[in-house]
């Protein structure tokens, strides 16, 4: 499984004016099995960093390596064999006439054989509850089905590392829970890794074991999620804001020594038990 190392990466969108850096000297490693929460205010550079990892942008300075291969020298097509990315509002990318075709797109581009594609498409469609819609138009699906399809069309590529950008922005209660179960489903396979950029910390705490915080293009903190919650400074300096839920969890685990996973589980039961 893939290991990603980000080494002293700086990035500027203006190619000729190399002082306006959106990311500054960022270093970080993502190991197999990591589920990393990328936090930071809007405009701090989260999306930019995700695009750099995906190879959609190339570092202005520094290097990103995926298992020793430099992303600056690899095409997105090459990188996409190991890493895949779900964009914000992924429903926007639909184009095919049928759900089947939409799901097949990535596999066709990889040049898989017809029978193989058919088999995979049906398998993934079943897993995502889309089997009965295979011949329907993606545009006719309901909101939740659209979301499932857009994610299924990435998961079908079987990435080792999955990158997700703001998965919960604008979502209601049910769709937010849907995102959680999908992401947990992905993480069930051993040694897959995940990077999620979000400002929804409550959501992030339910799926991540590590966290990295960027502010104004700089990586200001990294470590495991539990120690992030013990970190007072990041929250008091106005870089991140606690929600009621995150401040409660933070207090319970740091003052009362209750296991983090247990707290998250009980909180979920509270919500679901009453639901």
């Amino acid at each position: 499984m893939a290991k990603i190392s980000i080494e002293d990466v700086s990035f500027s969108y203006e190619q000729d004016k190399k002082n306006n850096f959106v990311l500054k000297d960022v270093s970080y490693s993502i190991l197999p099995g990591d589920s990393v929460l990328l936090l930071g205010p809007n405009g701090s550079g989260k999306t930019t960093l995700l695009k750099l990892i995906m190879g959609l942008l190339k570092p202005t300075k520094g290097k990103i390596r995926i298992d020793d291969a430099d992303t600056s020298k690899a095409s997105v097509f090459e990188i996409s064999k190991k890493v895949s990315m779900i964009f914000q509002n992924p429903e926007k990318q639909f184009f095919a006439e049928t759900v089947r075709e939409e799901l097949s797109f990535g596999l066709k581009n990889r040049g898989l054989r017809e029978e193989e594609i058919k088999k995979k498409v049906e398998e993934v469609a079943k897993k995502f509850g889309l089997f009965e819609y295979l011949d329907k138009s993606p545009f006719d699906l309901s909101g939740g089905e659209k979301r499932r399809l857009s994610i299924a069309s990435i998961i079908i590529l079987d990435p080792e590392v999955l990158i997700v950008d703001e998965p919960t922005a604008g979502l209601d209660f049910q769709y937010r829970n849907l995102m959680i179960s999908i992401i947990r489903g992905f993480l069930e396979t051993r040694n897959k890794s995940l990077v999620v950029a979000t400002h929804d910390i409550d959501f992030g705490l339910r799926i991540a074991n590590k966290a990295a915080v960027i502010n104004e293009g700089k990586l200001v903190w990294s470590g495991d999620v539990v120690s992030l919650l013990r970190e007072e400074e990041i929250f008091s300096k106005g870089i991140l804001a606690h929600t009621f839920t995150s401040s409660l969890i933070s207090r319970v685990i740091s003052q009362s020594n209750v296991d983090f996973q247990k707290v998250v589980k009980i909180l979920e039961e509270l919500t679901e038990g009453l639901m």
Partner: peptide, 24 residues
């Protein structure tokens, strides 16, 4: 970008294929 992640390649194939590749 989203379609490139799904393996779209605009530089491959003959003229017709390339034009079709723009549809997604």
């Amino acid at each position: 970008d989203a379609q490139r992640v799904r393996g779209l390649n605009l530089e491959k194939g003959n003229l017709l294929e390339r034009t079709k590749a723009f549809l997604p």
